[in-house]
Amino acid sequence: MSSREKTAFVGLTVFLAVFPWVSALSRSFSHYVDVMIFAGIFSLVTIGLSLLMGFAGQISLAQAAFFGIGAYGSGILTGHFHWNPWAAMLAGVCVAAAVAWVVGVPALRLKGHYLAMATLGFGVIVHIVMNEEVDWTGGPSGLGGIPGIRLAGRKISGDAAWFYLVWAFVLAAFLFSRHVLHSRVGRALRAIHDDEKAAEAMGVPVSSLKVQVFVYSAVLAAVAGSLYAHYVSFLSPGSFDLMWSIRFVLMVVFGGMQSLWGALVGTVLLTFVGNEWLQVFADFEILVYGGILLVMALFVPQGLVVWMDAFFRRRSRLQPTPSDGGS
């Protein structure tokens, strides 16, 4: 880790450590901790997606489906069968991984729009299953009665406890993903992103790596889904539809695809924008979202984090250095 990044990471950890206390000081911000819990859950999804999109160069519109598989896996196993929540989380993750592998092998042979279409189709199928398998998922009226989660013999309750639990997962996923990116695999992924044929010629196992990253992103999404299920304690198919898949992609693009920091910043900002700051636009929210995506694609294609990084480097008259994957 470069010292710059180390500073940023320490800063982030300190920020997260004090956030619940600081936000509780003022009544106007006391609910920000709730927004941050959701932002953390979504960050788990987008960190995986960022690896897939920004580094392996594969677009997926199925992340909400994997998010949902994790959520319903936990919901059904703990609600109907009274499993331990952690065992249920593991089971949900395994199912998501298996499904991602089965879907990924043929789908990742496709490129560009076709891959997006295939993952979109898969997402729609999962959404239909959630709606129609009433006996298992509760169908459109939703699945309730999901128990809370226990850690070291204590029930996680209260917003601060949830905040720390969720963000501990996020930091772990962040560090692990960063580690992957700076390994042999990460370099191979970037080679695939730049030129698949060239990468293959250099001996990179392109298709198996792509499938592995896809599975990894599904695993993170499923963990996020499981946390969502236990936190909200109620699931309905509307929380896992195509619109959410698009939102996840947008979060990654907004922050910057080529950077894990981008996924974090994009997710937190857009979660706040969607729940706090865009409320005034109401019906036009979707237009504003579209506008943000358009402006970003046209003027800031590298994403907010990379753009700001470059901006501040220029300001401090430093020679720009080639961006490394983790910055």
């Binding site: 470069s2 010292s3 710059r4 990044e5 500073t7 940023a8 800063g11 920020f15 910043v265 700001m308 990084d309 901006f311 501040f312 480097r313 300001r315 401090s316 430093l318 910055s327």
Partner: peptide, 12 residues
């Protein structure tokens, strides 16, 4: 290092 912490400070 400084540049990074500065923009982090900026974002925060």
């Amino acid at each position: 290092m400084k540049a990074k912490s500065r923009w982090v400070a900026g974002v925060v």
